[in-house]
Amino acid sequence: MFEQPMWQTFLSRLRAAAGVAQAAIVVMAASGEDVIEVRSGQGGEGFARFLTEGHADESARLQLMREARVYALEEIVAAGGPAQAGFAADVLRPAGIFDLRAVRLREPAGLDGWLILAGREELGAAQGRLLALVVPHFRAALRAFSALERERARAQISAEAFRRMNFGWITLDAACCVVDMDSQAESLLARTSAIRKGPRGRLLPASPEIDRALTSQVRALAADPAARPKALHLSRDPWIDLLVAPVRLHGLAGGNQPVAVAYISGDRSSSADRREQLVGLFGLSPSEARLAWAMAQGLGIAEAAAELGLTVETARNYSKKIYAKTGARGQADLVRHILTSVLALA
């Protein structure tokens, strides 16, 4: 199933063993919408339509072909209807296919799978027996394929959640070299100068102090996998943090084994961009937006005033206008308003 197209080696060997012109596999989701069809050899195309047209729901498919029973072409046409008869006349015969054997299986999670042998002459009992012998193995393949599809879907959902939260991950070996990373981490590294992947694969923070702290933490995790995670602050504008934790799962793949995973979180926008977005979202003035963003980063009124070159009294006046325009009842509420607004997705 890892070949492209899938199952080609199996289908070509099955076709040769059966002495037929074509072997095919059709896999359909329970909804009947997502369909995979792979073939080996020359013959017809569109077997999914032949096996399901006019029988889209599960009960109708069961009536057309009972599970695990081998059917001949004439049986499917007789049990089907105009769609099946038309396919045989309009697609199979012009392609030189005059007979076939097919079997249908249902995977417990809901996938339907069909295995088809198509020949240029009448097929006999030998091809039917061969399909019957293959049924247990085809069932196992369907289950494995279904499990992989579930894991792929879960991985996609997890990746999307990480993307929306601006999180990525980087696995590191004992020498602080990158073993692997996800696309979100690659994107974060591409747009910041605070940390990068060095020419020999080493993860290099721009700050020597942070570099020493990162190296020390990875060495500690290599020596003691139970060591506590450590957070490192890389950049304030845009905001980027790193949490270096032990790797809890280990695979059997070759190459360097990771000893640590660095979860990287970074804002996609600069402070200037965020201030412009606050102006548009809440109707703040540029001065109010600068103060609101500083407060959203955890600075108190006095700290924000000092950073922005304002008097504390001016900052307090601005904050009252900010609270009124955003509907916040205080700084904690303001932080929630800003960080849970659509800015989090910007």
Rank of each mutant, 00 (worst) to 15 (best):
R163A: 14
E276R: 14
L243E: 07
N317F: 11
A245N: 03
L308H: 06
I76P: 05
A315I: 03
A161I: 14
A296R: 03
F162K: 13
M181V: 00
A159Q: 12
V261C: 08
R336G: 00
A220F: 04
V335G: 02
G300K: 05
F145Q: 10
A328C: 02
A227Y: 00
V77S: 06
R143M: 13
I210M: 10
G300E: 11
V259N: 03
I170L: 04
A155E: 13
R154N: 06
A56W: 09
D182I: 01
A344G: 07
E75Y: 05
G41E: 06
I97V: 15
V261M: 10
L11K: 09
A72F: 06
A147T: 07
A155R: 13
V27F: 04
A147S: 09
R268K: 11
G280S: 08
L203Q: 06
L243P: 00
A227P: 04
S265H: 14
R104Q: 08
R316T: 09
A17R: 14
V134K: 00
H337S: 11
A30Y: 03
L281S: 02
S40L: 01
V91S: 08
E209M: 09
R61C: 03
W169E: 09
G298T: 04
L299N: 11
K321A: 15
C176G: 11
E307F: 08
A260Y: 05
E209D: 10
S31V: 05
R196W: 06
L188C: 02
V103H: 00
A72Q: 12
A118N: 02
L133V: 06
S216F: 01
G255P: 04
D180Y: 00
A262P: 05
R219P: 03
R236H: 12
R129S: 12
I76Q: 05
V35C: 07
T52N: 08
V244G: 07
S265L: 09
L291N: 01
A102D: 00
A292Y: 05
A306Q: 14
D173G: 07
S183W: 01
R316V: 04
L243V: 13
W169F: 14
G32C: 06
A109N: 10
Q277P: 00
A253V: 12
S287T: 10
E122K: 15
G309T: 07
F98G: 11
E307L: 14
Q22A: 08
A296F: 02
S183N: 08
I195V: 15
Y263M: 13
L214D: 01
D333V: 02
N317D: 14
W293E: 15
S287Q: 11
K321W: 05
P246Y: 00
A24E: 08
V20I: 09
A155F: 09
A174R: 15
F145K: 00
L339Q: 12
G168C: 03
Q4W: 10
E33T: 12
A272F: 11
L73S: 07
Q22V: 08
D224Y: 03
G81P: 06
T215Q: 13
P208R: 05
T314Y: 13
F145H: 14
A144K: 11
G81N: 03
